Amino acid sequence: MATTRKFGDPELFGEVWADDYDDRTTLDPTPAVDFLAGLAGGGRVLELAVGTGRVALPLAARGIKVEGVEGSARMAARLREKPGGDGVPVTVGDMADVPVDGPFTLVYLVYNTLFNLLEAGRQQACFDNVARVLDEDAAFVIEAYVPDPAAFDGGQRVKALSVTEDSATIEVFRFDLAAQRFHSQKITFDADGIHMRPHAERYCWPTELDLMADRAGLRLERRVADWSGRPFGPDSTGHVSVYRRDR
Rank of each mutant, 00 (worst) to 15 (best):
G8I: 11
E15Y: 09
W17G: 03
D19Y: 04
D23Q: 13
D23K: 10
R24S: 13
T26Y: 06
D28R: 07
T30G: 12
V33A: 08
D34M: 06
A37R: 01
G38T: 02
G38K: 10
L39N: 00
L46H: 06
L48W: 11
G51E: 00
P58N: 06
P58R: 08
L59N: 10
L59P: 09
V66E: 04
E67F: 08
E67I: 04
G68A: 13
V69Q: 06
G71P: 10
S72V: 08
M75G: 04
A76E: 05
D94M: 02
A96I: 02
V100T: 04
Y108F: 15
T113A: 05
L118H: 14
L118E: 10
A120I: 02
A120H: 01
A120L: 02
R122I: 00
Q123C: 03
F127L: 06
F127E: 09
D128T: 15
N129W: 06
R132E: 11
R132W: 12
R132N: 10
V133M: 10
D137F: 08
A138T: 11
F140M: 10
I142N: 06
E143V: 02
G154L: 14
Q156P: 02
K159V: 14
S162M: 12
E165G: 09
E171N: 12
E171A: 15
R174I: 05
L177G: 01
R181V: 03
F182I: 03
K186N: 12
D190P: 00
R197V: 08
A200Y: 06
A200M: 12
W205S: 05
L209C: 09
L211E: 12
V224A: 03
V224H: 00
A225V: 00
W227Y: 13
R230C: 00
F232Y: 15
G233A: 12
D235K: 14
S236K: 03
T237A: 05
G238T: 07
V240I: 15
